[in-house]
Every structure is written in structure tokens, then in C-alpha cells.
Design a protein around this nucleic acid. Structure first.
Lengths: 371, 371
DNA sequence: TTGAAAGCGCTAACAT
DNA sequence: ATGTTAGCGCTTTCAA
């Protein structure tokens, strides 16, 4: 207490300007020594260390992290880039919130903080600036879309050897670090399940095509349907929407509303549909609501399978059969990989090419297609 | 292109070390001028500005944000402190995700980034370090609990005049900046609604008592019940759980599982309960599941009201009557207030005391208590 | 084991 | 309108 007394003036005017210098004076050592003690670097005599620690404590000294970052040229932050859409509650979507939780877990584990950055979709050259700004040591990009502009930006970053990773999005032909799930297999198993349950006239409600996983799901659907001989023109189209009769193909944007709207279209083809595979639970839920309003009871009159296995799938009526995706683990893994990469060789030299991963999905059977 | 040619060596070895100096040389001005142009400060001749901008562009120069933060003593980050619980998917809880979305909106609006920091509940002196580290200009604390330790820490911060705010948590007797909702009123209206629907034997499933809003809800419940003459011992206990007969009072921790478990206890008092008010939707949903497994059909055999009006409330069977809380707006407001405060007078001087707010909730009626 | 000193890249007086 | 220069608080050689 009285040791700190001579620094009264400091106490008065903010408490926050306790600098290393004062600690050094109080402990009777040089600033460099304080530095060493605080960051546990280099050899220090135990007694000295003790003295410095006490001085620091009594002055309530905390190193300035910004200055540290500056000197070390390392921020201690993992950047997470999110698409910014005004008024859309992005954290409230199952996919983002799970991935973020996983990232959060890993980040904490590795002693980083997490810097969330919102990019305005469509505005170019945003990614590079994130790294240039040095506010982050590495970053994870969520909600990336495959447009020429984004692809070019990402390629530039990859060429510069910057440690970034993508979650749940694949850019074919590029060697980006990607943590994805096997959505083709996931969709395939969902549709197979419907077929095994005796459904034949299976419609597909897909999400926005600019996400690679929409294409993946399309492939899974087409493959399962073809194998069962339920789709005409076996080899005509490799796997695009053209391969599917229009009364079986619907497209939303992964929102509940878009599922709700799709219901209105589907009722027009009511007699040609006995089951629907929806590309995510939100759309499936909107669809169920819409169908019900048209007097079609999900689970009884029509089978539904969703995708994501979000919390909501458990509480719908009937509970929704859905495909579980390990989003949490994907986020965790992405953070781990990208931070490890950042900690390793900086610069573009001697980096092994990033090794992407594709995790397994799992069909979770509930009551929505068990008539 | 050829203007940049002489900096070939830079291009090769990382692209990221383009510094202001090089821009200055290329543009034939001083470094200070580059600085002025880049940060739009001070008077600049249009032609000079143009030249600098071109040079910067051709070299692909981006200011180092860390160095800027360091020199300006201002990070441009809003810190958001979250409780860290291993394996709990914190972003996936409605409350956190909505508040974060609101913060994200405002942060983007005001040109800040959002730094997420996980604190380990129970570890002291974490809050102060956040400010001391200078990584953030202000911060918002989520999931704070009213323990002596936390209270003391927060008080220290408040005394130091640090710009922080709390969301959805009230510390009585303190003058913290708090953005809260009127949970007493919310609960009161929920229980009133049950009473108006003819229910008399109304149980209360509350959440963890360390959150002020649990106490708020308790008060609302007791008030409504007393006004209707449904609770014995009118003035005995001001408003604690003791005031409620044990067969009407249950306590969970806001998780679905805890609601599920409460169901098992409730069935033992089956004949003394015809309605339940649950302190959040998750518990309400777990409760509904649990009751159903005991052959008690929610909405038909027993009325249920939830709280939060999360997305899940819309899709349960039956759809859950619930109390809507403007979490998004609360987050947005908290961010606005705290950042405004940070931008204003720094230091503890001449600050008006923070002005807290309590927003209104709104009962959303669905089918879970409309027998 | 410790101290002295040179940066890190930028901002912000102060000078011109 | 622009240049000069002294920091910002810390890390990190290099010496001692």
C-alpha cells in the first residue's frame, strides 16, 4: 500500500496509465526486466521476478495489449468475417451460431480473442484489407459465396500465403483451406431414406445456388433418385436442376419465409408429390406451416425431411427428420487449423498447402416421414 | 504497374510489408502527408491527395490498424464479454444470439469492430484486465451474475469511469449502465393471461436465481397471483420463493434439460396444477416434452406459457404462448450508449452518470393455453 | 542475469 | 498546405 503511495497522482487521474516504467522504478530494475518478467521470456532471477511481480501488483499494472501487438507484430486475434445484412439477425441462424460456438471454443483454448468483422456482400477488396490492417493473425470466412469477385480476392489472399479458412463452402479448382461437410452424401442418405420408406414422388426444395453446398445437395438428390430409377433422362444432365422435372424442383433462399412460399407452389402439383426433401430446417419448417394452411398435414399427408438438425427440428409437429451437420466441430477445426498455420511459418514460404477436410453428416430419423 | 516495379523485392516476400514510407517516396511527399491523406485529417491539396492515393493503390498499401490504435490510443473495438462454458454452444441460445445481432448492427453502423472475449465464470479480476489491455474502447458484458466478486469488480470499473454496459442484468444499488427489460411486468402479464383464461392452479418454473431477471419474474408471478387471491399469506414474504407453495414452485437453469426434469417433479403434483408459467422457452419446451412422456398433453391437459418468444415458440406443438423480449434492440442500444460514452469524455471526469433503460416486453398469444 | 537502446508504423504537435 | 520530429509502450537484439 505505502509502496504505491508515491504514485498518488496516478491513482487520481484514471488508473489506466500505469506504465511499465513506473513498475521498473518501484521494483528497482530496468524496463526490460519488467518486460521479461511479464511475458515470461528469458532468464530471470527468482528474487527479481518476485520483486517485479509485487511492484506490478501494487500499482495494478497490466501490459498494454495494443502496444504488445504492435511490437510483436501479432494481434492475438482471430478474425471471423461474417456477411452483414441489415436487420438480419445473423447470430440467430443455426449454422452461424454453431460454427461461431465452435470457433469460440478453440479460440479460448489457444489463448486468442475473436474479432468479428462484418463485410458488406458485394463490396470488393474487403478481405485483403482485413489482413493488411493487421488486426488479426488469421481469419475464418463464413458465408462466402462463389462469385467471380470473391473468388479472385480469395485467390489473391491464398497466393500471398495468408492464413485464412472457409467453412461450409467449397471453391472447386482452388486450393483454399476449407472445412466442409459432405452434403452430397447427406442429401443422398436423406432421399434414400424417403425411398426406403416407400415414397416415390419426392420433391426437392433447394437453397440459394451461390453456395457450394446447395450444389452438393442437388447432386445427392439426383444421385439417389436416379439410382432408384425415379428420375428420367439418366445421363442427360450431370447434376443440375434441369435434370429434375419442374414439379419436383423448388428453390428458396434458406429462410423460413422462402419455405413458406414454396408451399404455395407445391400445392399446385399436389398430386405429383408425396414427399419433400428440404435443404435446411428453416425452409422445411416454413414449408410445413404453408402446407398445413393448405390443409396438407406434414407427416400424414406428405413426408418431409429437413437438413441441419437444428434445435427446431426436435420441437416441430411432427418432429422433423433431418440431416445433422457437425457445424460446431467444423468451426472448432477451422479455428485450430488456421491458427496453427498462422503460428507456424509466417510469409508465403515453406508452407505446406492447406489440407481441407470434409466431415460426415448423419441422418436423424424422427416422425416427419414415418406415415 | 511500372511505378511499383522498383519495389519488386517487396512483392516477393509477403506483400504485407508495404509501409507508409514507400508510399511517401513514390508520391514524392512526406510520410506525414501520406498519413493525412489516408486518415482524411487536415488540409490537403487535391492534387497531392490524388498523387498519394495513386501511389498507395499501386503499392497496395493499407495502414496498419494496430499501429494506428497504438498511436491514437484507441482500438476501434467494442469488447463483448461472454461467459465461457466448455461445450456449451453459447451463440445458439436465443438470448445471446439476438443481443449479439443487435450489437453487431450498431457496431457496424458506428464503424467499430466487435471483439468477443470469453471470461471464465468464477475467475476474478477479468473485467478490469479487459480494459487495461486497451484492446477495446468500451465493452458490453453479457451473462453477468450478481455475486459479491463480480459486483465488486464492476463497481471498481464504474468508479474508474470506464465505459461498460450490462444487458439484461440489474445490480440494485449500483449506478451501472444497464439495458434491461421489464421482466416483472412481462411475467405479470403472462400470469394474468393464464388467470384470465380461467386457470387458477398455476405453477411457476423459474430459472437460476443469480440472474436479476429471475427475481424480476418471480415478483411478477407473485404479484399476479396475489392480486387474484390465488396465493396464501398475502404480505408474509415480499416476493421470494418462500411465498409460493412448494408444489407450485420449481427451479431450473434455463436449459431444456432442466425443464424436462421439472416435468417429472410436476407430475407428482399433477392434481394441484393446471397451468405452468416457465421463465424461458427452452425450459417450457423441455417441460412440454417431459409432460407429454407422462401422458399429459400440453395445451389440452395443461396450459403452458413460455418466455422470450424465441423462434422455437412458433414451431412447438402446440405453438407456445410466450413473452417477447426485445433482445436485439437491447443489444443495439447498449452498443450505442456505451460507444457514445467512450467517444465522449475519456477518463472519469465530467461524465454524466449513465442512464439505464428498461424496455417493454410483450405477451404473444398462441395456442398453448387456449383449451 | 540484467541493462541500454533501437525500432515497430503511426499520430499529432509544432514549424515552416 | 506540407515537412519535421517527438513520442505511443512494448519487444528484442546486443553488450556487459
Amino acid at each position: 500500500m505505502d509502496t504505491a503511495a508515491k504514485y498518488n497522482h496516478v491513482d487520481e487521474e484514471a488508473e489506466s496509465i500505469v506504465t511499465r516504467k513506473e513498475v521498473a522504478e518501484l521494483a528497482g530494475v530496468s524496463e526490460a526486466t519488467v518486460s521479461r518478467v511479464m511475458s515470461g521470456v528469458g532468464p530471470i532471477k527468482a528474487e527479481t521476478k518476485q520483486r517485479v511481480l509485487e511492484a506490478a501488483q501494487s500499482l495494478n499494472y497490466h501490459p498494454n495489449a495494443i502496444a504488445q501487438s504492435f511490437a510483436r507484430r501479432r494481434s492475438g486475434n482471430l478474425g471471423v468475417v461474417l456477411p452483414y445484412v441489415p436487420k438480419v439477425h445473423i447470430f440467430s441462424t443455426y449454422y452461424f451460431s454453431e460454427v461461431l460456438s465452435g470457433i469460440g471454443e478453440q479460440v479460448k483454448e489457444m489463448g486468442y480473442d475473436m474479432l468479428l468483422m462484418f463485410r458488406t456482400p458485394g463490396v470488393e477488396s474487403d478481405y485483403m484489407r482485413i489482413f493488411r490492417s493487421q488486426k488479426v493473425d488469421a481469419c475464418i470466412i463464413l458465408g462466402a459465396t462463389d462469385t467471380p469477385g470473391e473468388r479472385a480476392e480469395l485467390r489473391t489472399m491464398a497466393e500471398a500465403g495468408l492464413p485464412f479458412g472457409l467453412v461450409n463452402q467449397h471453391f472447386s479448382g482452388e486450393r483454399f483451406l476449407e472445412i466442409d461437410a459432405d452434403h452430397t452424401e447427406g442429401s443422398y442418405s436423406a432421399v434414400k431414406h424417403l425411398i426406403a420408406r416407400g415414397y416415390r414422388r419426392i420433391a426437392f426444395l433447394n437453397g440459394s445456388p451461390q453456395y457450394s453446398n446447395s450444389g452438393d445437395r442437388l447432386r445427392g438428390y439426383v444421385q439417389a433418385m436416379r439410382e432408384a430409377g425415379l428420375l428420367p433422362g439418366v445421363e442427360a444432365h450431370p447434376a443440375d436442376a434441369e435434370a429434375i422435372p419442374p414439379h419436383w424442383y423448388y428453390e428458396g433462399n434458406y429462410s423460413r419465409t422462402s419455405g413458406y412460399k414454396a408451399a404455395a407452389e407445391m400445392v399446385r402439383n399436389r398430386d405429383r408429390i408425396d414427399a419433400v426433401f428440404a435443404s435446411n430446417d428453416r425452409m422445411a419448417i416454413g414449408l410445413m406451416q404453408g402446407l398445413r394452411e393448405h390443409g396438407i398435414v406434414p407427416g400424414r399427408d406428405i413426408a418431409i425431411v429437413g437438413y441441419d438438425d437444428s434445435d427446431a427440428a426436435r420441437v416441430t409437429d411432427p418432429p422433423l427428420t433431418s440431416v445433422a451437420v457437425p457445424f460446431y466441430e467444423m468451426g472448432r477445426l477451422a479455428a485450430e487449423k488456421v491458427l496453427t498455420r498462422a503460428a507456424g511459418g509466417s510469409g508465403a514460404d515453406e508452407q505446406e498447402p492447406p489440407v481441407s477436410m470434409k466431415l460426415d453428416t448423419k441422418l436423424v430419423i424422427r416422425q416427419s416421414c414415418e406415415r
